[in-house]
Amino acid sequence: MNVIEVENLVKAYTDLALEVVAVDHVNLTVKKGEFTAIVGPSGSGKTTLLNMIGGLDKPTSGTIRVNNKDITQLNSKELINFRLHNIGFIFQSYNLIPVLTAKENVSFIMEMQGENRKTVDERVSEILTAVGLGDRMNSRPNQLSGGQQQRVAVARAMASRPQFIIADEPTANLDSKTTEKLLDLMEELNEKENITFLFSTHDQRVVNKARRIVVLEDGKVVEDNENIKQ
């Protein structure tokens, strides 16, 4: 079953009077439960592609369908709602809400979704224990290390069991040991909860964990290796 279907996606913008095509007629299909890495050099269009798939940016042309729904036709308000109920985000700089505890950061999205308190509490406790932070639930972001914060971010992205998770360079700010642990965790959660992961990375260790690698160059897909770990 296809979760994401991208067809002829183009993103062009003008920089100093020159037209730059960041994403150039990309076609991509992501199936349920895939653990996909999008790799490529800087400026190849990885982040732009992920932003458009995540409904954060509008394409110049082409379509993006998530569970057969064309998200390029949604307006800004509908996109916010769509992201809330369908996509989990993991950012390079963790980006937790600084005034909320780990538990509150994770429960925040579920509460915005309108889940009841009991369900939220159970799920938050389950997911934070799964990422190894069962004993740090009441810590605020500034009381956690970078790796711990990124684990909270993973838990936040996964808590509401979204259709897929977009992770933009999730390990860029982490040391190698923490990166290793986080990747193991993401892989484990992907297998256990069958949540689709789509991440951009430069990091070879991340690439090594991926089960599918999409290579982008100058905004075009130049290579797509599926089932490389099976």
């Binding site: 709602n81 992201r83 809330l84 985000f89 980006n95 809400i97």
Partner: peptide
């Protein structure tokens, strides 16, 4: 501003 951007990205309505 960055924090606001993140909150909107993860699905918080601008009104909130």
């Amino acid at each position: 501003m960055r924090e606001f951007g993140i909150m909107v990205a993860i699905g918080m309505k601008k009104f909130k």
